[in-house]
């Protein structure tokens, strides 16, 4: 590794990946700046007007100066604003779930590797079990039991994804553990946690970054799917998946914009993340160098 700048330069050698990173940065910025960018606060019911419901893109609002560039939904919500705020929620849920999964996976994976023996075997059995069961089903059952809500969907996503991280971390940690320098610091009498954070963790990072980037995309897609199935987020603060679901019933009657635009945005977001992850995988995995 030749430092962050070097990594970035090598990253940018792939034009598509560079464009994907730019797109992702742009979307993330738009999500952060949504309250200032959006012409309307789509969650403030006082700003919506039912008389403006289901207007096609480019329509002017009846009572205000607003122009609905991407049309309105069934409540008269400006689609552009709803999408910007939805993007915010999708990204927040995706990142929160990834952070949670990462933290849990890291903890479990590292302790598993450090403990070894029976504990290790038991933890990895549990991870296997979880991996053998499709994430969508696990999250669906969990949410059905927990009920909808942003916190709950994050919890369900963490439960569905922690094992990926735990596996990856343990794999790297096991390799590192056998290396001489760990044996050396152990001889120095350093405490367990210290070894963990000062030595093992940094070496696990590259692998984790790759897994985490991929999982952010997966988490966002999964959240959208669950919201579409009606077990995700509340209707008044729709994520991208819920916007698409809400537009479903209008699709057959030709009001395409309620479903199509959020879908394109969701696709762009996941695609950008996956392309970045793909490039990182190549860069950070020495075995794949040049592939």
């Amino acid at each position: 590794m030749k430092g962050a700048a070097g990594l970035l330069a090598r990253y940018a050698e792939d034009r598509v990946a560079a464009a994907a990173l730019a797109l992702f940065a742009l979307l993330a910025l738009a999500a952060l700046a949504a309250p200032w960018l959006a012409p309307q606060n789509p969650y403030d019911l006082a700003q919506l007007d039912i008389l403006d419901a289901r207007l096609p893109p480019g329509s002017a609002a009846g009572a205000t100066e607003l122009v609905y560039r991407l049309g309105t939904d069934a409540q008269g919500r400006d689609m552009l604003s709803a999408m910007l705020y939805g993007l915010r929620i999708s990204l927040a849920v995706g990142f929160a779930a990834t952070a949670g999964g990462l933290a849990l996976g890291l903890l479990v994976g590292l302790s598993s590797a450090l403990a070894g023996g029976r504990v290790d075997a038991l933890i990895m059995r549990a991870a296997d079990l979880q991996l053998a069961f499709p994430a969508i089903l696990l999250a669906l059952i969990l949410l059905a039991a927990l009920g909808p809500g942003p916190g709950k969907i994050v919890a369900a996503l963490v439960a569905a994804q922690w094992a990926y991280y735990a596996r990856a971390v343990r794999g790297v940690a096991l390799v590192e553990r056998e290396k001489d320098y760990i044996a050396a610091v152990r001889l120095l009498g350093l405490s367990g946690p210290r070894i963990l954070f000062r030595h093992l963790l940094p070496n696990c990072l590259p692998a984790l970054i790759v897994v985490a980037t991929l999982q952010v995309g997966a988490a966002i897609a999964l959240e959208a799917t669950l919201s579409f199935l009606g077990v995700g987020l509340p209707v008044t603060e729709p994520s991208l998946g819920l916007l698409i679901a809400n537009g479903f019933q209008y699709l057959l009657s030709g009001k395409y914009w309620i479903s199509v635009f959020p879908g394109l945005l969701l696709l762009g977001l996941i695609l950008a993340i996956n392309l970045v992850a793909e490039r990182l995988r190549v860069l950070l995995n020495p075995r794949l160098q040049g592939v």
Binding site: G217, A221, A224, T225, F228, G241, I244, F248, L251, L252, Y256, S259, V260, G263, L266, L267, I270, L271, I273, N274, L275, E278
Partner: peptide, 18 residues
Amino acid sequence: SVLGFSLPTFWVGLMFIM
């Protein structure tokens, strides 16, 4: 293949229907 990986299945289904 990266595109196919990123397509939200349910949304593609809706687009197919449309």
